[in-house]
Amino acid sequence: MANLHRFANPNRFLRFSRVILPWLAGITALLFIVGLYYALFASPADYQQGETVRIMYVHVPAAWISMFGYSVMAGASATALIWRHPLADITARAAAPIGAGFTLITLATGSLWGKPMWGTWWVWDARLTSVLILFFLYLGHIALSRAFDDPTRGAKAAAVLALVGFVNVPIIKFSVDWWNVLHQPASVSRLAAPAIDPSMLRPLLIMALAFTFYFLTLLLLQIRAELTHRKVRALQLAQASAQ
């Protein structure tokens, strides 16, 4: 906790984010360039999926980030509720719209992959349904955290919701193993012997890293924006009460 509290001071956090942001942005750009090169040009077509495997290089990373984002949000919410850490509230609030964006990408690209491969835009299996629920949980979190006149009350209510909704994350993760569904089981997680060829694993992992760094960049920017808006509100209140 000692490390965490070093960043409890928003000004120190702002200084830290100013130093680290250019690095994050640079690494993200580099990873996207290399990842897209491998994903689009330097990797073969799959013998079953054909060229549509290239959709996987954005679909799978987006799906990972949509769950990672929710975990960040739930972790920050727990920190906010238990230790009342001031930045945790802001982190949870900032992560929600970004996570929702990645979930939207997951659903849309999955749909565009499903049409040529399964012959349908959408099937109501456990994996797809639980990701759809994840999307609605993100939207509910966004709506709830902005539904109160007092922003701290909204943050607390949203934090409880984030923790309740976390039940959904393991369900998404294991839905393909628990139920026999159309969606294929994970082929990367078996680290010892991944069921995927290195020529395809490479673009997938680079794109996943690129998405992760993009998420972190956006998160830092969004936290900074939230902090600025909070400062503006505090100043306005101080001025209003001074008059």
């Binding site: 709830l144 539904a147 109160f148 006149d149 909204g154 209510a157 409880v160």
Partner: peptide, 10 residues
């Protein structure tokens, strides 16, 4: 849970 969370919300 929903009822408790939305107490006092618009």
């Amino acid at each position: 849970i929903g009822a408790a969370l939305t107490l006092g919300a618009r």
